[in-house]
């Protein structure tokens, strides 16, 4: 026979100690959308610069890929097809020698240059982080003013992983001096199409 008096699990312990407080429920505020910037494109471009990213044209991207400066290039872009690329390996660790990755973003936020990417854009989740240099291709029509608008567009769309990337990897951990290229991509270029 199982003893009736069982030791509470930690889950039960935590939940019961909250329940026994019998707190009065506080209202959940609705999220307004707030005014967006009037000139979304210009604001977005400025934000990219502020974050130490750069905007380049499609032509400049093609030149970049063909310049030979980046021996190993991966492109998952559908917006700019037929770029030099290779079949992704199974493991992220096999991408340690990746020089340049080109991927499509889903939407960009003008106020902070954050670009939303999901699993389907990345191929492998490690791609935008492990690559030495990153290019994100984004449709101009997919720019929004602020984060509220961004989330209302994203909705609850399912992706196992989603990420806002806003610039090249950076740190200011040494005397507050900004250094680009901490662990992730050393540069971010954005191509608006």
């Amino acid at each position: 026979m199982v003893s009736k008096k069982q030791i509470m699990s930690s889950k039960e312990l935590i939940l019961s100690s909250i329940k026994k407080l019998s707190q009065e429920e506080q209202p959940l505020p609705a999220v307004p959308s707030f005014d967006e910037s009037e000139n979304t494109l210009e604001t977005f471009q400025q934000s990219v610069k502020n974050n130490k990213g750069t905007i380049i044209s499609e032509l400049e991207l093609v030149d970049l890929v063909n310049s030979g400066a980046y021996p190993k290039v991966y492109s998952g872009s559908r917006l700019i097809p037929d770029l030099k690329t290779f079949e992704l390996p199974e493991k992220g660790t096999d991408l340690n020698d990746l020089d340049l990755a080109i991927i499509d973003g889903q939407l960009g936020v003008a106020e902070n240059a954050a670009i939303w990417l999901e699993d389907e854009n990345l191929g492998l989740r490690a791609v935008p982080f492990i690559t030495q240099h990153l290019v994100i291709v984004l449709e101009k029509s997919k720019l929004v003013g602020n984060m509220h608008e961004a989330y209302s567009l994203i909705g609850s769309h399912y992706s196992g992983f989603g990420v806002f990337i806003a610039g090249p990897s950076k740190t200011a951990d040494i005397e507050q001096s900004l250094v680009i290229g901490a662990h992730g991509a050393k540069s971010l270029r954005v191509v608006l199409v």
Binding site: S47, N51, E111, F129, F161
Partner: peptide
């Protein structure tokens, strides 16, 4: 998250957003 991500980095370091905001589902 729209509200909190707007507040977090600006309050922390004065950036408009942290560089990488990863959503694990």
């Amino acid at each position: 998250l729209g509200i909190f991500l707007r507040l977090l980095a600006r309050s922390a370091t004065g950036q408009s957003i942290t560089n990488y905001n990863s959503h694990f589902r």
